[in-house]
Design a protein around this nucleic acid. Sequence first.
DNA 1: GTCTATATTGAGATAGAC
DNA 2: GTCTATCTCAATATAGAC
Lengths: 199, 199
Amino acid sequence: MARKTGSHSEITGPRIRAEAGQLFARHGFAAVSMRQIAAAVGVQAGALYLYTPDKESLLFELLKTHMDELLAAWTTQAGATTGAADPRAQLERFVRFHIRFNLERAQAVFLSYMELRNLSPENFACIEALRRRYEDTLEAILREGQAAGCFALPDTKLATLAIIAMLTGVNTWFREGGRLSRATVEGIYWDMVRKAVAA
Amino acid sequence: MARKTGSHSEITGPRIRAEAGQLFARHGFAAVSMRQIAAAVGVQAGALYLYTPDKESLLFELLKTHMDELLAAWTTQAGATTGAADPRAQLERFVRFHIRFNLERAQAVFLSYMELRNLSPENFACIEALRRRYEDTLEAILREGQAAGCFALPDTKLATLAIIAMLTGVNTWFREGGRLSRATVEGIYWDMVRKAVAA
DNA sequence: GTCTATATTGAGATAGAC
DNA sequence: GTCTATCTCAATATAGAC
């Protein structure tokens, strides 16, 4: 009883986002056509517009969802130990979390820093604000550590950006099944960060 | 005696590359049309094809020139002191060179890691090989330092990638006339790198 | 909810006049 | 060396049948 037309709204919506994400990551937002996305999903181009008002909204949804999940995951992870916890332990937790989470969502991470400029100004500002909030959580840890005397940093804001750039860089070279496991990589990067911020 | 048609091949060629570079950096390669480039230069779209066989070659020339100049500049910079020099001094030289050079050529650096996927496989491989050669010069410094006992790194290759990612990250936030001068930024990053690799 | 068909726009690239 | 004009193709998005 296979039929080509029918109701699949709960399936088609997520599939469109999944295929669009893959294609955007592979070829770049501007280089991917709505026809390509439709073909990957297995529907006609016109059908996409039942699920998204336009191409850009498709990209925005992917980035927004990713940033929301990133912040939620970190809040959960950090929640147990905020406040009184040792800044060094908090920093280690952040380093390991960032690497682990970003490797799990490599595609969304890639889109989040490659395709930002394809958003409208308002949507761009929205994503930027979320990214900034995430950075601020690391900056807060570094400040606490400096106040407690266990970190020594020439410039806290720059250290924040430097650490995040360094950690996010893992995504550009890490390949599953390569020379190093994820846990090993976490350990190696934590070692370098630990020394870089040490008093 | 202003005339609209005439011979300007020595001027028009470089101007096309300059305007294309600006537009590619601002909007992304795929989002920029040949007509836009022509309009920025002040010629008709058809005239561009006197200077480039196609759009992709325009991008490739920009990236190739940048990588060649990067390697040449570093060779010059490092040339005076290779071999016997102190690895710590070599590393400091590299850190400061990388930040300074990348800030001077921010546009080309941006293109080099945002638009690589728009190259044909052969052209992509060419740029990748040059990037790899540049990375290898840093890796060699780190290896010498470890052999000499002044650096202690859990993994030399990862440290290479981590340091380059961290340094290149400066380009994402640095703005001329901001809170910090280039020289100050160099110093701050060198301080963090120095500690991260310390024995 | 999905289809076919199409309106509209603009892309990359080329031909040939000047 | 640059121009105008054009070929060919594909893009986003919409309309209306089923």
